[in-house]
């Protein structure tokens, strides 16, 4: 049983605060979903948890089973059991997936001779052609292929907690089905804990969510069961936004400061 605890997390990019005190806890086997409008800090949250360069953590904690993740290099966080599926997986020319996974297994003290068989098994399960594994990592892959590739790596690496940054974006129906099925299975078979970030509900048709959290301006303003996602889909985020920003206002105050936040 593992638990990822994010406590009062504040972070900024280039001096601009983006996360303003995020609290969320994900345990093994649970699926938590973070939803929110553009610019609410969803992707930043996932990046900061994994330690992507370009952000500064100003306050708060990220603990995995009590271990301070923020003090670790990204690879050590991965070794501790975190995985981040990126919204836009990075192209790494000339580097094969298998070589990366072998190095990862070695660093984690796992038997790297298993990698090839695991890759083969998982590619079949997720619907990835074998020749695709010989190509450079993410180079010349379609958006959907990249997401399948992220899911494949997730399945081979078997982390404790996976953070999925908009896994559903750029995925067609079939790919979405195969990727989310695989992850759903991992939550049951491997007790994988999931923190999924998404704009849309459609991921939740396949991946059964336990909790939905609404992120607005870098803070979780409401949490609830799966019914919250349904409400967000029909009503949008208007009720969570300050009145001045709600999109469906009548006549705007002509004296209001247009730059006010």
């Amino acid at each position: 049983m593992s638990t990822l605890k994010v406590r009062g997390l504040c972070a900024s990019a280039g001096g601009t605060p983006i996360l303003n005190g995020v609290d969320v806890t994900v345990s093994s086997g649970e699926v938590h979903v973070i939803m929110g409008p553009n610019g609410s800090g969803k992707s930043t949250l996932s990046h900061v948890i994994m330690g992507r360069p370009g952000y500064e953590v100003t306050e708060g904690q990220v603990l995995l089973d009590g271990v301070d993740m923020l003090a670790l290099a990204p690879w050590e966080r991965a070794k501790a059991g975190l995985f981040l599926a990126l919204q836009y997986p990075t192209e790494v020319p000339g580097v094969r997936l298998e070589d990366v996974l072998v190095e990862s297994f070695r660093a984690a003290g796992r038997d790297d001779l298993q990698v090839s068989a695991l890759l083969e098994r998982e590619s079949r399960r997720i619907g990835i052609e074998a020749d695709f594994l010989e190509r450079s990592l993410n180079v010349d892959l379609s958006g959907g292929e990249k997401k399948r590739n992220e899911t494949l790596q997730l399945a081979v690496l078997e982390p404790r907690i996976a953070i999925l940054d908009e896994l559903d974006s750029g995925l067609d129906v079939d790919a979405l089905h195969e990727c989310s099925q695989r992850i759903e299975a991992m939550t049951n078979e491997n007790h994988l804990g999931v923190l999924a970030i998404t704009h849309y509900n459609r991921l939740l048709h396949e991946l059964r969510a336990d909790r939905i959290h609404v992120l607005i301006k870098g803070r979780i303003v409401e949490s609830g069961g799966p019914e919250l996602a349904t409400e967000l889909e029909s009503d949008g985020y208007a009720r969570f936004l300050p009145a001045a920003e709600a999109p469906s206002l009548g006549a705007a105050d002509p004296f209001a400061d247009p730059f006010a936040v």
Partner: peptide
């Protein structure tokens, strides 16, 4: 690129070499 490989659990120096 380095971050991407690191986020898969590859140590920094190995990620750079790759």
């Amino acid at each position: 690129q380095r971050f991407y490989l690191e986020s898969r659990g590859v140590p920094t120096d190995v990620a750079e070499r790759l």
